[in-house]
Simulated scan of single mutants.
Amino acid sequence: MRAPFVHEATVGMAADGDPRGPGGAITLELCGSWDHSPPCPVAAHHTRAERAGGTVVLRVVFATEPEDEADVRRRIDQALHSGTVTSPDGVVSHWEFHGSRISVPTPAEAEHARGLAGT
Rank of each mutant, 00 (worst) to 15 (best):
M1E: 13
R2Y: 08
P4A: 12
F5V: 07
E8W: 00
E8M: 06
A9Q: 05
V11P: 02
M13Q: 13
M13I: 15
A14E: 14
D16S: 14
D16C: 09
D16N: 11
D18R: 06
P19H: 02
R20L: 14
G21P: 09
P22F: 00
G24E: 06
A25G: 14
I26H: 00
I26R: 00
I26M: 02
T27N: 08
L28P: 10
L28E: 11
E29W: 02
S33F: 03
S33W: 02
S33Q: 12
W34A: 13
W34E: 14
H36I: 11
H36K: 09
H36W: 11
S37V: 12
S37L: 13
S37I: 07
A43K: 03
A43M: 11
A44H: 08
H45L: 08
T47S: 10
A49E: 12
A49I: 01
A49R: 05
A49W: 04
E50C: 05
R51H: 10
A52Q: 15
A52F: 09
G54D: 14
T55Q: 08
T55R: 11
T55S: 05
T55Y: 01
V56F: 01
V56C: 04
V57P: 00
L58A: 03
V60Y: 00
V60R: 01
V60P: 01
V61A: 09
V61T: 15
T64M: 00
E65Q: 12
E65D: 12
P66W: 11
E67T: 15
E67F: 06
E69W: 02
E69T: 08
A70F: 03
D71E: 14
D71N: 10
D71C: 07
V72G: 00
R73N: 07
R74G: 13
D77R: 12
D77E: 15
Q78W: 08
A79H: 01
A79F: 05
A79M: 07
L80H: 04
H81M: 11
G83K: 01
G83F: 03
T84H: 08
V85R: 00
T86C: 05
P88H: 03
P88Q: 04
G90M: 10
V92I: 15
S93V: 12
H94I: 05
W95Q: 05
E96S: 15
F97R: 06
H98D: 13
H98F: 07
G99R: 10
G99D: 05
S100C: 09
S100G: 12
R101E: 14
R101C: 10
I102D: 13
I102M: 05
S103F: 01
S103I: 00
V104S: 10
V104C: 04
P105V: 03
P105E: 01
P105L: 02
T106E: 08
T106N: 01
P107L: 00
P107C: 03
E109V: 08
A110C: 02
A110R: 11
E111V: 13
H112Q: 13
A113E: 03
A113Y: 02
A113I: 06
R114K: 13
G115N: 07
G115E: 13
A117L: 06
T119V: 11
T119R: 10
